[in-house]
Design a protein around this nucleic acid. Structure first.
Lengths: 343, 343
DNA sequence: CATTAGCACTCGATTTGTTTGAGTGCTAAT
DNA sequence: ATTAGCACTCAAACAAATCGAGTGCTAATG
């Protein structure tokens, strides 16, 4: 069934896709010949288009409209047709400028990155923050707030801070708090947060803990601190989809916004991209998410050294400017990697 | 011009408003007599409605449609007609349950509160976090991340944490960091963050700083830490406005979402509510924000002791269920006050 | 024999016209 | 003062007519 595509077929398919990307209207044979002068008559183009439709690259909304590319067409376009042009000098600078907000903590940087992705691509920018789990323990600190209220602050090497308020069962003197943190800091030095979690459990069951009240309490406190890991997601530029004609309909809008309101769906999606390497492209149904029909996403992981930290990317309609967005995502991911590397 | 409203006039106005609140359709004389049996003929109602229109309580979209309440009508309704019914037992419990997420830091609690406000009211929930400025300094801590990278952690009495990564000009030994934080903790004890800011400036210009290198550096670092105050806003349930028929139009939707995307507008609005006390109601143009025509908001401040901490509230169409939402906002504000009080 | 001109045909979108019905204001009867 | 009656209005809903971009097919063409 998969007859080879003639060179002319490719050329016409490409023309159709590119036209559709900018106009969002079904494109017909006339239009093609007008906008991409290639010394062919509409009739010929029609024949070719009929072939392309049979091969599953095109679909017609109804008999007397033009044709629109299918997911398969976009896939082919991205794989074979598209010459990923290099990222523009000015774009590059814009990205660099926007991401290099000095002195901010990581969350701020990533949020700004997401915002930048959305405004340079004109679609939605998404950044999934590194799982706290993968970070390396740096220090734990306890601050007394009230007689029993204790603020626990957990710092990891890259400067991420997690804090949590703990109600202690009984009052703990300030000195003890210092001792406790000293003890823990020594104990947990150099471990990842995931390992820290395990270690704490082990320690609590060990003999030492049973004899040393203070230690036991320290362990209990820190377990409470460290015991959850909700990955953060930054989604920005949702309003951009209002400008996409294919969603210009309140019902569809609502669906989309609902989907992106609960971030778990997105997380699930991006988690898949996390295991892959480099730029990933999911076109339409390829995302296997029925919640977002007609949308594509372009993602890339960002890393430090060998470790994959997180994923970032852009979500837009399948009819998205791949040629422009792919290099943006790619460059941004590398940039963010570099920025975090320095830490 | 402000002729007195007859008791019958009030009654009919109330009927119209309440009808419009549930149907969102212009209401006519027939409808009124049908739905609110009050032994009056449509013709009579018509006469009264004409009077009400002249007085500025009603407006007709066009001659042969029913009439809709004006802002003035809602204002009158809220001031004079509305009997704020007590909050329902079950609603109260729902709110209590949703807000009492133990062990979370304040940001989480407020975010959840906002989410709760939106889902119980079916409009948009907004919570403005306390200005960090007003908090009372508790402790500052420096953590070394790299040779020159230092993480500064600022804790206030109520457990709010702000942290910031600082690039130092030169390497600072760990001991010095401890000394510095000790010095600062003593210096800043008990001040509000706003005062801290001033104090730091003063100190830096004092003689001591000129002689004591270390102290000077400590001051410089902490100034960097403390030198910004971006109030946080939690806006949740934006999708709810998709269900409001008056905004069922892509252009209006877009405007609204755009407005709420940059939170500064909202902040500006809520800042005004901050100085007032208790429940505030802004109907339509009363908010003086041309960015959100046709919307009302109901806010209340939350406090601990004498201090106003922040504002929370609900934003919806002017045609909003005031009778239901007002007690919700009121109760929630009091609850949040209580929750933070305990800290 | 691939290409193209020609042509009848389709079908959504747009336009125009008609009907419907909820609503109004006014007047005259109650 | 209230209401029944009536002529009038106007958006919305529906239907028919028209338009036009597009199609598939066939026959002519280089």
């Amino acid at each position: 069934m998969d007859e080879q595509l003639s060179s002319r077929g490719r050329q016409i398919l490409e023309a159709i896709i590119e036209d559709y990307i900018v106009t969002a209207e079904p494109v017909g044979s006339r239009t093609i010949t007008r906008r991409h002068p290639m010394s062919l008559s509409p009739a010929t183009v029609r024949n070719v288009m009929a072939d392309l439709e049979e091969m599953g690259f095109l679909a017609s909304p109804h008999t007397s409209a033009g044709r629109i590319p299918t997911d398969k067409a976009y896939r082919f376009y991205v794989n074979s047709l598209l010459s990923v042009r290099n990222i523009g000098r000015d774009e590059q600078e814009e990205i660099l400028r926007r991401c290099s907000v000095a002195g901010k903590d990581m969350a701020e940087v990533l949020k700004e990155t997401s915002r930048m992705l959305s405004s340079t691509s004109h679609y939605m920018g998404i950044v999934v923050a590194p799982r706290f789990d993968a970070n390396i323990f740096r220090q734990i600190e306890f601050v007394r707030l009230g007689s029993r209220r204790i603020l626990a602050i957990l710092v990891s090497r890259n400067g991420t801070v997690q804090n949590r308020i703990i109600e202690a069962d009984e009052e703990i003197p300030a000195d003890d708090l210092v001792k406790m943190s000293n003890y823990l800091n020594e104990l947990l030095e150099g471990l990842t947060i995931a390992q820290v979690r395990k270690k704490l459990l082990q320690e609590m069951q060990s003999d030492k803990a049973r004899y040393d009240q203070l230690m036991a309490r320290a362990l209990a406190l820190s377990t409470k601190t460290v015991n959850e890991d909700d990955a953060e997601v930054f989604i920005e530029g949702q309003v951009n989809i209002f400008d996409q004609p294919e969603f210009a309909d309140v019902a569809k809008m609502k669906d989309i916004f609902r989907t992106f309101e609960k971030k778990s769906t997105i997380l699930q999606l991006f988690d898949r991209a996390l295991v892959a390497e480099g730029v990933q492209i999911y076109i339409g149904a390829e995302s296997h998410l029925s919640d977002m029909p007609g949308m594509s996403l372009i993602t890339s992981t960002y890393v430090t050294g060998q470790n994959t930290l997180g994923v970032l990317g852009v979500v837009g309609p399948t009819r998205m400017g791949y040629a422009k967005v792919i290099p943006i995502v790619d460059y941004t991911a590398k940039l963010v990697s570099r920025l975090l590397e320095m830490e």
